[in-house]
């Protein structure tokens, strides 16, 4: 008799499990028929804090819109846009031609917005006496040609190269504009000894701790515990520290546009959000977070 009960109980459980699934589906359908819109926003880790700040402010203004923001790297966001799992892809680099082709093959026409500008700061440990480098010196350091701080006027210490992972837009930008000095036919890559760290925080914490290290990161991420190096675009020119002014007047050499990509035929809610992002209120947040607003 007891066994009988047990089996009945099991069956009941199974039935109940079935019930909960179907009622959950019912609830989801009920929610989507209301006015709430949910927007999936994913991509660049450089932009993620900015996108989160925007999403919070926008949701406070428009409670019917839900925006979920996740990082993961520019490549991750763009892949999501191509697969159709992401509505707005954040990218710290422009989409590559093959990515646009892949999107078109999936029936998606990507639309590009430049939403802010970012300066890449080259950072060293505060104990490191090196205060300034030319773009060429930085390139030679990351190519593995210059391997000791003595060669650029520092102490007799080995140089430990830090970089973001290859799925980071910052990595690709740094490779093309700094390591290759913008020369498109140059196929040099980072020295194999370069440490590829999975996060911006990883780079900041290693530079903060290790006097041998050199790293780079978006200006918005740089804390006061590391030292920003002044950069000259070539030997003999002025060494410039990154800031909103030096980026906008073009004096600081390592700066780039930040992008968001949507489908060309995105819903009205997404278009409204993009218009708001380019407006004055959202661009004020850009300045607060250490990025450079786009000039109207």
């Amino acid at each position: 008799m007891k066994r009988h009960l047990f089996v009945t109980y099991l069956l009941l459980l199974l039935l109940l499990a079935g019930c909960t699934v179907s009622s959950a589906q019912g609830a989801a359908e009920g929610a989507s028929s209301e006015a709430t819109v949910s927007i999936q926003n994913k991509g660049s880790d450089t932009i993620v804090n900015l996108a989160l700040a925007w999403a919070e402010r926008y949701q406070a203004l428009h409670p019917e819109t839900r925006i979920s923001v996740t990082g993961g790297g520019s490549g991750t966001g763009i892949t999501g846009l191509i697969d159709g799992t992401v509505d707005i892809a954040n990218a710290s680099r422009a989409m590559k031609a093959e990515e646009i082709d892949a999107a078109k093959a999936n029936g998606i026409e990507p639309k590009e917005y430049v939403i802010a500008r970012d300066a890449i700061a080259v950072i060293v440990n505060p104990e490191n006496p090196v205060n300034r480098l030319t773009l060429e010196q930085i390139s030679l350091i990351y190519r593995g040609v210059i391997t000791n701080w003595m060669e650029v006027g520092g102490d007799d210490r080995p140089i430990v190269l830090l970089s973001r992972e290859t799925n980071s837009g910052t990595h690709v930008y740094f490779l093309e504009s700094v390591v290759r000095l913008g020369n498109k036919s140059d196929k040099t890559i980072f020295a194999p000894e370069t440490l590829l760290l999975p996060s911006s925080e990883g780079i900041i914490s290693e530079v903060r701790d290790n006097p041998n290290a050199i790293g780079y990161d978006g200006l918005g991420y740089v804390t006061s515990e590391v030292k920003v190096v002044a950069v000259a675009s070539r030997a003999g020119e002025a060494y410039v520290l990154p800031s909103a002014e030096t980026v906008n007047d073009g004096k600081y050499a390592i700066s780039r546009d930040l992008y968001m990509y949507t489908h060309a035929d995105a819903s009205q809610a997404i278009r409204d959000y993009m218009d708001w992002i380019l407006g004055p209120e959202a661009q004020a947040i850009v300045t607060d977070l250490g990025f450079v607003p786009v000039n109207p």
């Binding site: 993961g72 790297g73 490549g75 991750t76 892949t79 191509i82 697969d83 990515e99 892949a102 992972e165 290859t166 799925n167 590829l196 999975p198």
Partner: peptide, 9 residues
């Protein structure tokens, strides 16, 4: 782990 998320299928 670090690269699977970004590659195209």
């Amino acid at each position: 782990a670090s690269e699977m998320g970004e590659v195209a299928n």
